[in-house]
């Protein structure tokens, strides 16, 4: 069973989510897409201390995200 949607910044370290929605202008979305973020892709949270920037793994790439940027990515939590 899948769980609710949360923003990427709320995903705990080690948890996996599926990207459902990108919120923002076309420039922002096109940058995210080029880095591998499209709806349906799996992301794994690598580092998230609940404040400051965070690190995710998407399509074999480690990406550092500002907290504000991560808040604009909605993911569906995969069940544990």
């Amino acid at each position: 069973m899948s769980e609710e949607w949360v923003s990427l910044s709320d995903l705990a370290p080690g948890r996996v989510g599926v990207v459902r929605q990108l919120v923002g202008g076309r420039g922002f979305i096109s940058r995210l897409a080029a880095l591998g973020f499209t709806p349906g892709v799996e992301v794994t949270m690598v580092q998230n201390f609940g404040h400051g920037p965070l690190i995710v793994l998407v399509r074999d790439t480690r990406l550092a995200f500002g907290r504000g940027e991560a808040a604009k990515v909605m993911v569906e939590k995969a069940s544990e």
Partner: peptide, 11 residues
Amino acid sequence: EHVAFIMELPL
């Protein structure tokens, strides 16, 4: 303008 902070961390 806020510069979006998204950066690859290479292996």
